[in-house]
Nucleic acid binder design. Structure first.
Lengths: 362, 362
DNA sequence: CTGTTAGCGCCTTCAA
DNA sequence: TTGAAGGCGCTAACAG
């Protein structure tokens, strides 16, 4: 990875490295027009490319922003990543990517790695969990983040704060009103369907999932309904599929729902994210059931790639890209104006989208 | 971004920085057990995190791998990115992300930025174009890559070689048999459908698109058919949608195809990628047409998120993640064994998947 | 096996 | 305005 250095450029231009530095890389003081031109010519005649590592070392700041996701191929994270990337480019920064599969231990590692690379800021997009088994690692993650912030790093977390994080300076949260929106969804669904509801949730302890479940139940109650049964499975397509299989059996058996009334006229299914909903729908279809005739189904996120799915999936639309952008901007170096609004949770809103998959009149 | 330094650790442990370095960061020589322990304790009592920038400067290698894609939210690229990320982790490297929208100018910028950060290698996943308007920028990109390689960088390109790249040492190509696979697809489709075919392609000059079009035509000819008409539009969902609208009109008019025979019994549509195919299908549906009754439709890529689409989309399955992994591995530092197989195009195979969307018996 | 001495490439005081 | 000197944190040759 050798390349021509600033010193070489300077020599070629017959000036000191300091001067060359001033003209090539932004400095307050502007060298003379004539000399500047000479330096510039020397630079691109040599194909000079500044060594960002050295610059970073000297200035102790890297222009790097670290992004942590569960899985970059998951459309939810991919959409957020796009927003982060966009905002990063605006700020002329580059993004470093880390994927963790959602394990707090891995997230801690990622934070450490970013810290090692002296990333100026970190965006954590994956939802955190409060499972007891993850307790230790969550604590370690919190400690790592804490240290990172104390060393001047900026971090933005999407969704929920990191468990046990002490909210030091430089710690921002982009909160997503999962609970509220899920409640709204429940209310609207309940208005058009008077049968039983079932929730397909992620593993217990996953904040995003738990919030959405809680919200949905709250909405049901607000609509004068009893709480829905909750089926737990993994937070992805196959989790949805598995749950869907179980529900299909139940629907076909024409069994009774939790409320005791016959469920022979189908079920209202709420999957805590779109990908799970699609999985569940696929399972129902596999079992010969039809949507929305035999079961109404709704998801959450409004994933773009899934919009052409038929029947169109009812869901809650979230401004994923915008969330990524917001998170990134929240970690931007403080403006010279000093108008920092640290730690003030940034507002994000979503929108209930009722579509074909929950239409009550077939 | 201040943090404790190696020197501080060394002082605390009562040893020289060199020794501390040897125990903390991998070195050939192993310090004494006793001293090592002291250093390690000092290190984590201080919460020491090595400064990767400094390490990189000193060793002139950064452990960074740059990934260039058009759009990280596009499931095609997201899948490749996942593979890259995975392989990078195996090699204990981090990935730097750049998105370019496919513009060669941006790609050149990205390469320069990676070079500045002294990335050890670069993976270019976006398909290149040979449009005349892009000529200059393509040349610049080639030059930039060339320089990067000459300075010891490793680059892997997915799909097509960069136009005009001189294939210096360290330049690898993971070639995807787009043409061959498209031909196969055409042959198989032609076996089950004797009506007209139409191709929905991307903009002229886009290699990936052009190769697939060429291959499809070749396959048709191999099956004793005349060439299909080609509709050009943008290489994404909306491009497919637009083209789909036009075709819908044509189908509904029951017009005649290029071959002169009535097209009243529908059309065989090949969209050069899945996302476009889905867009086209959506357009047809909007116009009240049904698939495969009124039109058979096939895509390319076999995007995972789209597998639950109904009717299931016929397509060509590509091992996207594997491609990402291969590309990444190709750029790994030469093995000590010296068994480098530089520039030998790595083999990738795909598979034609005939599904419901092209079933001939409705 | 350990410590000392030089840089890696750049930026930033400080004098000139 | 320009140049000279020192240091950012670490590693890699050398000595000891």
């Amino acid at each position: 990875m050798a390349a021509s250095t600033l010193t070489e450029v300077a020599r070629l231009a017959g000036v000191s490295p300091a001067t060359a530095s001033r003209v090539l890389n932004g400095s307050a003081r502007k060298p003379g027009k004539d000399i500047a031109e000479r330096v510039r010519q020397a630079a691109d005649s040599l194909g000079y490319i500044p060594n960002a590592q050295a610059q970073g070392l000297a200035k102790s700041s890297s222009g790097l922003i670290g992004l942590i996701v569960h899985d970059i191929a998951d459309p939810y994270f991919a959409a957020i990543a796009r927003g982060v990337q966009e905002a990063a480019r605006e700020q002329r920064r580059m993004v470093l990517l880390a994927t963790t599969g959602g394990a707090p231990g891995e997230e801690k590692e990622a934070v450490a790695a970013f810290a090692a690379r002296r990333a100026d800021s970190i965006v954590i997009a994956g939802s955190r969990s409060s499972r007891a088994e993850d307790g230790d690692q969550n604590a370690e993650l919190a400690a790592e983040l804490d240290r990172y912030c104390r060393n001047g790093g900026q971090v933005a977390v999407v969704g929920h704060p990191v468990v046990g994080a002490a909210a030091p300076e430089g710690y921002h949260v982009v909160s997503v009103p999962n609970q509220e929106l899920a409640a709204k969804l429940a209310v609207e669904l309940a208005a058009g369907w008077d049968g039983d509801f079932v929730i397909i949730g992620g593993p217990e302890g996953l904040f995003t999932s738990d919030d959405r479940i809680r919200g949905f139940q709250e909405g049901l109650s607000r609509a004068g309904r009893g709480p829905a049964e909750v089926l737990r499975s993994s937070f992805n397509r196959s989790g949805g599929y598995d749950a869907g299989l179980k529900l299909a059996a139940r629907i076909k058996a024409g069994g009774t729902g939790q409320s005791g009334r016959p469920a022979g006229n189908g079920l209202g299914i709420f999957a805590v994210n779109d990908v799970m909903a699609i999985g569940a729908a696929a399972a129902l279809r596999t079992e010969g059931l039809r949507i929305p005739r035999d079961a109404r189904i709704a998801g959450f996120d409004d994933i773009e790639t899934l919009r052409d799915f038929r029947p169109a999936l009812s869901t809650v639309s979230l401004p994923l890209e915008e969330i990524g952008r917001l998170a990134t901007r929240a970690t931007a170096p403080p403006t010279a104006d000093g108008d920092e609004q640290d730690y003030a949770p940034l507002p994000v809103t979503g929108k209930v989208m009722l579509r074909r998959s929950t239409e009550t009149a077939d």
